[in-house]
């Protein structure tokens, strides 16, 4: 599968991103439950970008591990305001936007690998991987 970059700028793009992710996950052979997890993660993290950074992008890549597992890597990146305290943002219930504060911690629970990098004033990148089990 080729890498793809999906722009995230409007609310409509959130729906586009999750449709793309579901299609790719289904093509790669993920079972329904994992397709649903990946789609939900895409919806949460894409919405964070549109809501807090204004714009950014989702990059999708097929992944393979040293032990031969195959999977899907999703990279959500933006050049928005960044997150001052990442540990705090990862806590269940923490929200600066009147949300439920479930997007980041909930996404982490739905994937096998989760990495968040953020620099205040420069932007945020969240990278997740789910392996085909």
């Amino acid at each position: 599968m080729e890498n793809r970059s999906i722009p995230l700028e409007t609310e409509r793009d959130i729906a586009v991103a999750r449709n793309e992710v579901r299609n790719i996950a289904s093509q790669l052979g993920f079972r329904i439950i994992d397709q649903t997890r990946l789609t939900t993660v895409a919806s949460e993290l894409a919405r964070n970008i549109v809501k807090y950074a204004g714009r950014g992008r989702l990059i999708t890549q097929s992944a393979s591990s040293a032990t031969g597992k195959r999977g899907l890597r999703l990279i959500f990146e933006d050049e928005g305001p960044g997150i001052a305290d990442v540990d705090l943002a990862m806590r269940d219930g923490y929200s600066t936007g009147g949300g439920l504060g479930k997007g980041l911690p909930g996404s982490k629970r739905m994937v096998d690998e989760f990495k968040i990098e953020s620099i205040a004033g420069q932007g945020t990148r969240v990278t997740v991987v789910r392996w085909i089990h």
Partner: peptide, 14 residues
Amino acid sequence: MQPAVAITLVELGL
């Protein structure tokens, strides 16, 4: 609610 949706709701913590 589809079973997969129910599972992700729990994982999200909703």
